[in-house]
Nucleic acid binder design. Structure first.
Lengths: 332, 332
DNA sequence: CTGCTCCACTTAACCGGTCAAATACGAGGG
DNA sequence: CCCTCGTATTTGACCGGTTAAGTGGAGCAG
């Protein structure tokens, strides 16, 4: 390992001068700087980032907690976060919590000791119970993709999930649907509430037994729940699913029940990935996840440079309705 | 920030004794240890990992380069890698290269300075040209999911991609297909070669113009290429796609051309994610990506503890044929 | 009582940088 | 010619741990 001291001796200066050349914080005479740079090249010196981190107190690394990266949603967020971090010269330490609170806690505890400069947490399912661990965190923490109530302590950049549900409901209302049902993940309460609001605005209610929760966020889970729903309540003319893979299962179930989409049953989902192309293409409420990730990361970095606590605010990104082929006015 | 020194003073010992209690490397009298532990709890002390890294020379962090995490393939690999690392008490530093060689090079250069203990590189598309940068790496490097020729310097854990193609070809041959075509990503040469070998074994050739390369690894790219293929060469009875999203596009194109799958056209893909459920379900050659990721990571960790260079070997994981509904004997 | 070993702990140096204060040097003004 | 001033470089302490060598006292044999 070639150190700064080695470079210094070779260039006939002290290591402090070498440091000055590298960081550029203090002026160095051009001829000296050239000599130092030559020595750096000849020896193939690269600064030891760990030593630098110890001295400066900054690792230039940001931790990012996500529930999973096996799907497109958080995967894309990770890429966006990484892009922003890279522009700022930071590295990305990734932790996937995998619906496992204990695992999340372990990871969290492992990071609390100066190995990251800041922490971004997406998806509230697993970490929620362990956030108090962070109450004495000395680094900025930002939450994003947060659907449930967030602790006051931390700034949040998330989606207006209630509005996402509302947009779906309003679309179905505008098409004339009255009897509808919802296929949801248990955590998606805000979307369900928004969906209901759209109907309530017209004096209609979405009864509790028209809201079904899938056992698992998989196509199979969506299929089972949708199948049960269509069997017990065949009168519904439209179905709202809060998760893209649930929509896939629902589409299957509709087909299996002999109902053509959209004529016999309208289907509207949330943030259907473009990879999931189906027949017909699914109408969806798009979640601006990349923009959200970018905003959250930039907020985090701003807090890092301003060395103050970040503005304790809640920033809501607006979802957007994308009408494709799976919704139509009800038959008859 | 409470340091080891603070704990030491509180417990009435020196910081070395505190260190001994924490690491357990040197015996400490039980009564003293208890006092130290009490002080740790009272002060809420957590060791500074950066300082420890500087002293020990180990960051307990492993870098992982992948082309992308927006799709399921590498996303699942990331999770598997993380699992193995976590068991060993290591962190994961993630870099996605995003088909951008220059970006990959920058990231690589940023890590060469003691910030990671080891490096795992998956997917050969972007990094290939920059591997010489690693020639003087002081830490273990392992390559995985490597389809092209790998540099001799590094151990490789990858898939027998040639065999993956062969299995697809053999399946079609066993069904009786003679005139077939391939829809490939440009980098998937090994799979195409294996596919050809299966036909060559029966004295048949897959002509060059039956192998089409998609402009982009997207459903749209697959659709365009498959559409062109079916238009110019309507006599093919089966189609092999080397990428899951290409298969989706191909399925669309077959439908658009009025050919029912599998009766008018058999379709076989590679590693179709279970999320991509289609009608009919796609026959596929499954790529054991999680096992591959696990093996590669364990190899890396072994190299880390044995403090020697890892055995410079090539380990090939066997793909597996999964017959579903998209393949059948040719019509007539 | 002396000398030896062993245990438990302390002391001092080190990892490789950064930071702030001190110093050497040359130019300009009186 | 001396003093001042500004710039370029050096000095020494420091970040918070780990490693290796050193020290003091207890226990035991001779």
């Amino acid at each position: 390992m070639v150190t700064m001291q080695d470079v210094a001796e070779r260039a006939g200066v002290t290591k402090q001068t070498v440091s000055n050349v590298i960081t550029g914080r203090v002026a160095v005479r051009p001829t000296t700087a050239a000599r130092v740079r030559a020595a750096i090249d000849e020896l193939g010196y690269t600064p030891n980032l760990v030593a630098r981190s110890l001295a400066t107190g900054s690792t230039r690394t940001v931790g990012f907690f996500v529930p999973t990266v096996a799907g497109a949603f958080y995967g894309e967020m990770v890429e966006e976060v990484e892009d922003v971090l890279e522009e700022a010269g930071h590295h990305l330490l990734l932790c996937t919590t995998r619906l496992d609170g204990e695992r999340a806690r372990r990871h969290l505890a492992g990071l609390t000791s100066r190995s990251v400069d800041a922490l971004l947490i997406a998806g509230d399912q697993d970490l929620l119970g362990h956030l108090p661990l962070l109450s004495d965190a000395r680094f900025p923490v930002v939450l994003c993709a947060w659907e449930t109530e967030a602790p006051d302590r931390f700034p949040v950049v998330t989606i207006d999930y209630e509005r996402a549900g509302y947009l779906a409901g309003r679309h179905l209302r505008e098409l004339g649907h009255r009897r509808v049902a919802v296929l949801a993940s248990p955590a998606h309460t805000a979307r369900v509430a928004g969906f209901r609001r759209a109907f309530a605005a017209d004096g209609l209610t979405v009864p509790d037994d028209a809201v079904r929760y899938a056992a698992a966020p998989t196509p199979a889970g969506g299929f089972a729940a949708a199948e049960a729903l269509l069997a017990t309540d065949p009168g519904v003319t439209a179905l709202f699913t809060t998760h893209d893979v649930l929509a896939l299962g629902a589409l299957e179930a509709a087909r299996a029940a002999g109902r053509s989409v959209p004529h016999d049953l309208s289907l509207i989902g949330q943030d259907i990935s473009e990879v999931l192309l189906t027949h017909p293409a699914l109408t969806t409420v798009s979640i601006p996840k990349r923009e959200m990730a970018r905003q959250a990361t930039e907020l985090l970095l701003r807090a890092l440079t301003k060395t103050g606590t970040p503005a304790n605010s809640v920033q809501l990104m607006r979802p957007e309705l994308i009408v494709r082929g799976s919704t139509a006015p009800p038959a008859g």
